[in-house]
Computed example of a mutant assay.
Amino acid sequence: MANKFDDFINLIFHTKLKYGIFTLIAILISGIIYFKDFGSSSNIDKSNNYSIESNQISSNSEITNNSVSHESLQSNVVYVDIKGQVKKPGVYKLSSTLRVDDAIRLAGGFTKDANRNNVNLAQKLTDQMVILVEDEDDSKVSSNSNVAGKSSDKININTADANQLTSISGIGDKKANKIIDYRNQNGLFSSLDDLKNVDGFGDKTVEKLKEYLFT
């Protein structure tokens, strides 16, 4: 009887031991799975956060680069006033890297009456720059303003022929012929101011020619 009781006790002990071991193993496995999932989730969150931060840094960098590029572009822009004997005079918005030669080309180029000798085509453009291309005959008058002209005496504009007119600084063959044509079509000049009605004679030119002509 005592032996049976001992066997019964041993059976209960071994059964509880087995269940205890199984329970412990189950707890350990559950713990391993939990911590593994938690670690993976943390890594994913960190990866997502890093990706978001990287995108933000990249976006900020692009914005900064675009701003710098825009400011650089604006700082390279200059406004140039092109006047005189060019085909399309006016104010032009240009790059400061260009030269006077480029500006004149953009303004249509020189007219046939332009004096190119007084223009520095190699000069770099600056903001608020004025490029004045003078008339070829106006330049002659200007450069010889202290000279009495090719003739020592004043010439009557109403009787002068082409040779006499071209002897005056500032009047070439073309302008001499224009004076004669105007005189033939409209009669004698009543005053030298009538020269302003002839193509190619502006106020500045007429004032200087008064030193050499009379009516």
Score class of each variant (00 low, 15 high):
Leu165Gly: 11
Asn10Tyr: 07
Asn60Phe: 08
Lys112Met: 02
Gly187Arg: 12
Glu207Ser: 14
Ser151Ala: 06
Lys204Thr: 15
Ile33Ala: 13
Ser169Glu: 09
Tyr79His: 10
Ile57Lys: 15
Gly172Thr: 08
Leu192Cys: 09
Glu62Ala: 07
Lys112Gly: 01
Asn76Gln: 15
Gln128Met: 06
Ile33Val: 13
Ser190Thr: 15
Val78His: 11
Leu73Cys: 02
Asp113Leu: 07
Asp135Leu: 01
Ile27Glu: 03
Ala107Glu: 04
Ile32Ala: 13
Asn197Pro: 00
Ala176Trp: 04
Asp161Gln: 07
Ile27Arg: 05
Phe35Trp: 10
Gly84Val: 02
Val78Glu: 10
Asn3Ile: 07
Lys112Ile: 11
Asp173Val: 05
Ser191Met: 01
Lys87Ala: 04
Asp135Met: 04
Gln123Pro: 00
Leu192Gln: 08
Gly149Arg: 07
Lys178His: 06
Lys140Val: 10
Phe35His: 14
Gly187Met: 05
Gly31Tyr: 10
Thr159Glu: 12
Lys150Ser: 02
Asp102Ser: 15
Ala103Pro: 05
Lys204Glu: 06
Asn76Val: 00
Leu165Thr: 12
Ile29Cys: 11
Glu53Tyr: 07
Thr111Pro: 04
Lys174Phe: 03
Val91Lys: 15
Leu73Met: 08
Thr205Trp: 02
Ser143His: 10
Ser59Asp: 09
Phe110Ser: 10
Arg116Ala: 10
Ile27Asp: 00
Thr166Tyr: 02
Thr15His: 12
Leu11Ser: 14
Ile29Ser: 11
Asn156Lys: 08
Gly170Thr: 10
Lys16Asp: 06
Tyr182Pro: 02
Thr23Cys: 07
Asn117Glu: 13
Leu17Glu: 12
Asp193Met: 02
Lys87Glu: 09
Gly202Glu: 03
Glu71Asp: 13
Glu207Phe: 02
Ile171Thr: 05
Thr64Ala: 14
Leu121Asn: 09
Ile104Tyr: 09
Leu106Tyr: 14
Thr159Ile: 02
Phe201Asn: 11
Gln56Ser: 08
Asn115Gly: 04
Lys112Gln: 13
Val78Trp: 07
